[in-house]
Simulated scan of single mutants.
Amino acid sequence: MSQIIIEHKPSEERLAELGVAEWPIWEKEISTFSIDFDETETAYVLEGEIIVTPVGGEPVQILPGDLVVFPAGLDSHWEVVKPLRKHYSYD
């Protein structure tokens, strides 16, 4: 099973190294939906709160300041608890 990887509060240097400030921004209102990742997405959460539950796995809480990798092949259910703003990039 594909694992979600979370790096809590990465340093400014790490974010600069990844070029996060240049990534597009995605916003989502409070909602629930499924996402199946066919490519790896790296995201940096600016605002909001989401609970992502991999199919067959445990729920993962994701908060502002989290750098998250959603691996290719991950099938997941999302619950946006607070309106979400995140930078994102696909490998």
Rank of each mutant, 00 (worst) to 15 (best):
Q3I: 08
I4Q: 00
I4W: 04
I5P: 07
I6K: 01
I6E: 11
E7K: 10
H8Y: 07
P10L: 09
S11I: 03
S11Q: 06
S11R: 02
E12K: 15
E13H: 13
E13G: 13
E13V: 12
E13D: 15
R14P: 08
A16L: 12
E17K: 12
E17W: 11
V20C: 10
V20R: 05
A21C: 12
A21P: 02
W23C: 07
W23L: 06
P24W: 04
I25L: 07
I25M: 14
I25K: 11
W26C: 13
W26K: 14
W26N: 13
W26L: 15
E27I: 09
K28H: 14
E29S: 15
E29V: 12
S31R: 12
S31H: 11
T32F: 14
T32N: 10
S34V: 09
S34P: 13
I35F: 14
D36L: 09
D36M: 10
D38F: 06
E39Q: 08
T40R: 06
E41F: 03
E41S: 03
T42P: 03
A43V: 09
A43K: 00
A43M: 07
Y44N: 00
Y44I: 02
V45D: 00
L46T: 04
I51A: 03
T53P: 00
P54N: 04
V55L: 14
V55N: 12
G56T: 06
G56D: 08
G56E: 09
G56Q: 09
E58C: 05
P59I: 05
Q61G: 13
Q61P: 06
Q61W: 08
Q61M: 11
L63E: 08
G65T: 08
D66M: 04
L67Q: 00
V68L: 00
V69R: 03
V69T: 14
A72S: 12
A72T: 02
G73C: 05
G73K: 03
G73W: 01
G73T: 02
G73R: 04
L74T: 01
D75G: 07
W78N: 04
V80Q: 01
V81P: 01
K82H: 12
P83S: 10
P83N: 07
P83Q: 09
R85S: 12
K86Y: 02
K86S: 06
Y88D: 05
Y90G: 04
Y90T: 14
Y90P: 01
D91I: 04
